[in-house]
Design a protein around this nucleic acid. Structure first.
Lengths: 264, 264
DNA sequence: GTTTGCAATTGACCTTAATCAAGACAGATT
DNA sequence: AATCTGTCTTGATTAAGGTCAATTGCAAAC
């Protein structure tokens, strides 16, 4: 396997390190991490943190690194993935502003089982791992916030497993679109793909070619994708791909037209 | 899809409910959950808990249930899984004594995205979810313990995703055997399958037939499986299926014979 | 306006694991 | 011992998705 060699360059490269200005971080909508923290505890986190800019494509954390920070994305996007020695990748999460990562890893013990890569020019808030670990013992609210965050990741991972094992590529794609639709704007008939198609394909456990063919099949039921714009035929066209779990948080749930995949 | 109907009978069936005798639970080796808790906080958890026996095959939590307890397995085994309406299942975890479940779910918000089923006659300690949530805010140690547990689950889920996406069935099986080998007894040349083969097959994202054929291939490299006994040809025969992450916690790591899958 | 580069698409082909259908085997029951 | 039951194994076939290779399309760079 020549050619595609896993990058072995030490990270921490051409990136400016600024000392954490607490005003640089919007603590209100940025994250569930800071929710409900006392002013004192919040400051204690922020005053120890730094902000760092990183350019697209750079590795933030490598497989096997000792993880020294919890990261909050201030702007840009990042993906987390597992990569095999053969160069094959399995994308775990794709993140945008407000998301955190390495939040779970710092409680795992041992080195990082995942890699994190910037997929856009990004600005990251870095909170030292030892500060987090220390403060969790004192601040129950922080613990609860982290538990909610990590549990959420776990839930997504379980859905990802489920998708890959039990669903066809077309169904996986439909399900992914549905979730995008719901988190972006459940009333709009347009959805936007927030990431590169090949990256989404990998996240859904399929090859770009298969992704492309799946798009074609969705077109035949009224879901048209032009570049990164998805337009839905009618408001219910994605409902077929719904699962009971997602239905629960859907405004259309209960409507006569709501027939999630399994109920028929 | 006739025949295999998803069970829609309310749970909470023929199961004896005993009021939590704290001496019924071995708090020392049972769980990471209780580790380092003050006597007072531990008692506060246990005094509110109940113990329940459940027979093999019974549902403990169904998809969509509101989850009212965190469960600790005192004896027996349990699996957690996601099931589609078509009757297809994706096994997430397979648990034995000392393991906890619904630990993450109670922090997710909403109803349970997974099902839990007893796969052996089991005895469970049930700690009310509201007690846990409440106590996390007061007891940082409990929060840390839960974070470690849930992060561990997340890590396993990521490895599961990775396995299914990037590895062949034989590799997945080898990897699974390796992990069994390491957690059971890294020095023994014998490993025991703790679960039914068809269940392991599902957990690894393959059909029982494929599992069976994978066993055959492993036999040709000296890993022989007779019923639930796995015997290894030599101590390093599973090393080929190792990943850098697992290598890290392997006693053989660093040995000249240690060549994890990717290093060659 | 042309060129270059990358992502996405399309088609032809092939590999792999799922499917379907028997058959083997062990453990329990009588 | 004989039957039954469920699990596992084995073989033949199929279909889904991967692979390979060529092409399109767009956007940035020249």
């Amino acid at each position: 396997m020549p050619g595609k060699k896993p990058p072995c360059i030490p990270s921490g490269t051409s990136s400016e390190n600024i000392n954490a200005p607490s005003q640089a971080v919007d603590t209100s909508n940025t994250t569930a991490l800071f929710k409900g923290l006392s002013e004192e505890n919040l400051q204690s986190l922020l005053s120890n943190s730094t902000v760092r800019s990183i350019e697209s494509g750079r590795e933030i954390v490598q497989h096997g690194d000792e993880v020294k920070h919890l990261y909050v994305i201030i702007e840009g996007s990042v993906k987390t993935l597992r990569a095999s020695a053969e160069g094959e990748e399995a994308t775990i999460r794709m993140l945008t502003a407000g998301d955190t990562f390495m939040d779970a890893v710092i409680f795992m013990g041992g080195t990082s089982p995942i890699r994190a890569t910037a997929i856009k020019q990004s600005k990251l808030l870095m909170i030292p791992a030892h500060i987090i670990r220390q403060q969790v013992l004192r601040d129950g609210q922080l613990g609860e916030n982290l538990l909610k965050i990590v549990s959420g990741h776990y839930k997504n991972a379980m859905q990802q497993i489920d998708s890959i094992v039990t669903k066809t590529p077309v169904e996986r794609l439909g399900y992914y679109f549905l979730k995008l639709h719901m988190e972006q704007d459940p009333n709009s008939m347009e959805v936007e793909l927030p990431f590169q198609k090949s990256m989404i394909a990998n996240h859904l456990g399929m090859k770009p070619e298969t992704f492309s063919r799946a798009l074609k099949k969705l077109k035949s039921i009224g879901i048209d994708v032009d570049h990164e714009r998805i337009s839905l035929g009618d408001a219910y066209s994605l409902c077929h791909y719904c699962d009971p779990d997602t239905a629960f948080s859907c405004p259309k749930h209960g409507t006569p037209d709501c027939k999630p995949g399994g109920c028929n």
